[in-house]
Simulated assay, not measured.
Amino acid sequence: MYLPKSFHETRPDVLHALMRDYPFATIVMHGNDGLVANHVPLELVSDTSLHGHVARGNELAKADGAEVLVIFHGVDGYVSPSWYPSKHETGREVPTWNYAVIHVHGRLRVVEDQAWLRQLLERLTDRHEASQPKPWHVSDAPEDHIEKMLRLIVGIDIAIDGIEGKFKLSQNHPDANRAGVLKGLAERNGRRDAELAELMQHTEERRHER
């Protein structure tokens, strides 16, 4: 990944927070016919491990021991050059895109253990149902149905070998331009613009704390 120094994020707490807030990841590996990508919600269970599950027919279910690249996609958005005060002064600005992304390098282990899988499903379900008025639990389904579903999937445990974080959030611009981007996002108020602005502000605050 192209990673200029100003966009390089290395703080574990910041990286882990994004991985937990945006758990739907892309897993890339070399398959029999070349590169393949699968999209899987993953759980960061420790500094060194990601857990998830896939259908038995998925390439990942047959990839025990494979080296993988896991990509976590955070919030992103278009940035207009008209938002920069410097553009109105010199005209020397161009459009860009702000975003946060994490690349995790690791090795995949296929897990067949039914108890392991059951615990994973319960954790994932409890986490993602927590905001529902009446959260659904795995135990709400008939036991024979759950057992049948468990036989159709396998677990994946990805041992983390390294993490790269790229938070491209206008850090390479002067304060006035960054303020202009925040103002532009607020005025546009499109899908996820508020999230992007919040991440920009949070990253700026953390930068000054260093």
Rank of each mutant, 00 (worst) to 15 (best):
R56P: 11
G57D: 08
N58I: 03
E59S: 08
E59Y: 05
L60S: 01
L60E: 04
A61D: 11
A61Y: 11
K62C: 10
A63T: 01
G65A: 09
G65R: 04
A66V: 03
A66G: 05
A66W: 00
L69N: 04
I71D: 10
F72K: 04
F72T: 00
F72S: 10
H73L: 14
V75N: 03
D76Q: 12
G77W: 07
V79I: 14
V79G: 11
P81T: 02
S82L: 13
W83Y: 12
W83A: 09
W83I: 04
P85E: 15
K87Q: 12
K87V: 06
H88N: 13
H88S: 14
H88K: 14
E89V: 09
E89A: 15
E89D: 15
G91R: 10
R92S: 13
R92Q: 14
V94R: 10
V94I: 10
V94L: 07
P95F: 01
T96K: 03
T96N: 09
N98R: 09
Y99N: 07
A100T: 10
I102N: 05
H103W: 01
V104P: 01
G106E: 02
G106A: 00
G106K: 01
L108W: 00
V110Y: 08
V110A: 05
D113V: 00
W116Y: 14
W116A: 03
R118F: 00
R118G: 01
L121K: 00
E122A: 13
D126R: 15
D126L: 06
D126H: 09
R127H: 13
H128A: 11
H128I: 04
S131D: 12
Q132C: 06
Q132E: 10
Q132S: 11
P133T: 06
P133I: 12
